[in-house]
Design a protein around this nucleic acid. Structure first.
Lengths: 316, 316
DNA sequence: TATATTTGCGTAACTGATTACGTAATTAAT
DNA sequence: ATTAATTACGTAATCAGTTACGCAAATATA
């Protein structure tokens, strides 16, 4: 089975499962070898109780990392064998307090030799291998605790996707996309206003001819994001960042960030020193993005848009 | 859950299972992230078929390391989704030949990006860890292939047990054990003969007084093995190794080997140069043991025992 | 003090694998 | 040419875990 060499490491899950099976397989036989009447799956519970303290079902579950129904089932099996005893907690009637019975304690003594030998056998394997499995598992547990595999994959996807995103200057062929992408989100969250139609229906006359800029984000040659820089000339600000829109189907591709950064760079290269924008706090991802780019909240500017409830600026 | 630090490595099975679960957990969500309608458990089958060749159920099972019913079930699920197609082999009506359908091939293209990202994410984890999990698993697989965990544990048990075995010289208090242990195996495999009774009922007069030796193996102070060296003086041989018996309940403790080696050493120290023995080939473990000690088959000696069908000697 | 929420835990249903078993097709042996 | 053994594979039962759910007890809140 050279399967794993071909698949690459995606198959690490399958591979782990198979090794787990192989290791577990022998466990039952090992108990038999020592004449111990115990099932491998009982071991964690058994071991946990062998410390001497009595524990509730939930405590045991947390201790050994199983779900509580699993522990519940194991305890009822061990109860049949007479290895444990149950009792209700007097101060809390819900609690089922479990401890090893006399017979259980006897078994736990018998099992000691076995533990020594199994540990020795595993140490022997470890000694013969270059890479330490036990330690490697510990490291993986730690790293996955920090950041799940899903999150890591999402990041990699974003990285790769952003390589496919191309930021280009506006051309008449993108007018339809410029309009549609903006109408989509504006009418979804708010309602279209007079000044929206003016800019979206005639970007050439309303934005570009007045010294503004429009950039388009292409993903596999499809325009999935747009953003405009509108010339302001009010003495304080050079441009307003506006009409920024990214298709919802392009989420997680980092398009918003790439587009906005490109727009800021463009403004810089045109000699701008301050950019202004208006937005609404219900658009959380957008506000976060602006923040990430260095925009700061300001107040006091008059605005023609009723949907505006936050104003921001970026000093270049 | 500091459980694993306390248990020691016996718990490696549990620990592996939990890591497997954690890695597998995210798999379904990852497919969703890429809008791929696929179950994680299908992946190995899918991947194996994506090489392009059509394969039978059993071939697939061998390829991915599952049982054939498992593959059979997976294929029937994938069939419902239309990802694979089946056809009976024309030259062998039992075979169910499976290959990716058109839809399956499409999916396999869509999945490529995902594989890249997952691999990258896993490589990232690997890069952050000192001990390489992937390689460690490979080494374990190899080492367990060579010798199962059960066998390794058995060896450790034997090693530890043989430390508890003590070889001592015969004393009258062991006469009962000497007799019983021998009667046990002789009457089990053969029938007791005249010369057996003579030696067993009166070891002092029949063996020791004639210059012979008897050694006893004690395990936790209980005599569980015996072996005699009977003086021969026939010109060729100095001693006959005979009346060797080990209790069946003491199996796997290496007692036979320890006892026989001690007897051979004893003979050496008495200046012997050749030891003789008689046995029967149905006693395979015994014959193996004699072989291991260096005894070689010889022929031609007359013997009073009807059960003897092999004669051996050891040149010291 | 009454009501809502949380907690402990048992039962039931599900899941992804296995082994056990039966049937049909093929191949080997007498 | 039979008969026996092997092979391919589907179905059923099992296994060790899970999640979903519900009940009762305890705790928090109005």
């Amino acid at each position: 089975m050279n399967f794993f060499e071909q698949t690459g490491k995606v198959a690490i899950g399958s591979r782990l499962r198979m090794l787990t099976d192989k290791v577990t397989e022998d466990a039952a036989l090992i108990y038999k070898l020592y004449n111990i009447d115990m099932q491998p799956k009982w071991f964690p519970v058994f071991y946990s109780l062998a410390q001497g303290k009595e524990k509730t079902i939930t405590e045991l579950a947390k201790d050994i990392g199983h779900s509580h129904p699993s522990v519940s089932k194991i305890i009822s099996e061990m109860l049949k064998k007479g290895y444990v005893k149950e009792s209700k907690d007097k101060t809390d009637g819900r609690r089922n307090v479990v401890s090893l019975s006399k017979k259980g304690v006897e078994i736990s003594k018998e099992i000691e030799d076995q533990l020594i030998d199994v540990n020795a056998a595993i140490e022997e394997i470890s000694a013969q291998s270059q890479n330490k499995l036990w330690e490697a598992i510990g490291e993986w547990e730690f790293l996955l605790e920090q950041k799940t595999l899903l999150r890591r994959v999402m990041e990699k996807k974003k990285e790769r996707d952003s390589l496919k995103v191309e930021i280009v200057a506006y051309q008449p062929q993108y007018q339809e996309a410029f309009r549609a992408l903006n109408v989509e989100w504006i009418s979804h969250y708010f309602t279209m206003e007079e000044s929206d139609y003016k800019a979206l229906d005639n970007p050439q006359g309303y934005i570009l001819d007045k010294g503004g800029i429009i950039l388009v984000a292409l993903y596999e040659n499809e325009p999935l994001g747009v953003c405009a820089l509108i010339k302001m000339n009010d003495g304080e600000y050079d441009f307003e960042l506006a009409k920024m829109a990214v298709s919802p189907k392009a989420q997680g591709k980092n398009i918003g960030f790439l587009l906005a950064s490109a727009v800021v760079e463009k403004a810089k290269s045109l000699g701008a020193s301050k950019i202004y924008l208006e937005s609404n706090t219900i658009l959380k991802p957008a506000i976060n993005l602006y923040h990430k780019l260095g925009f700061q909240k300001v107040a006091g500017k008059p605005t023609p848009y009723t949907r505006c409830n936050i104003q921001m600026e970026l000093v270049l």
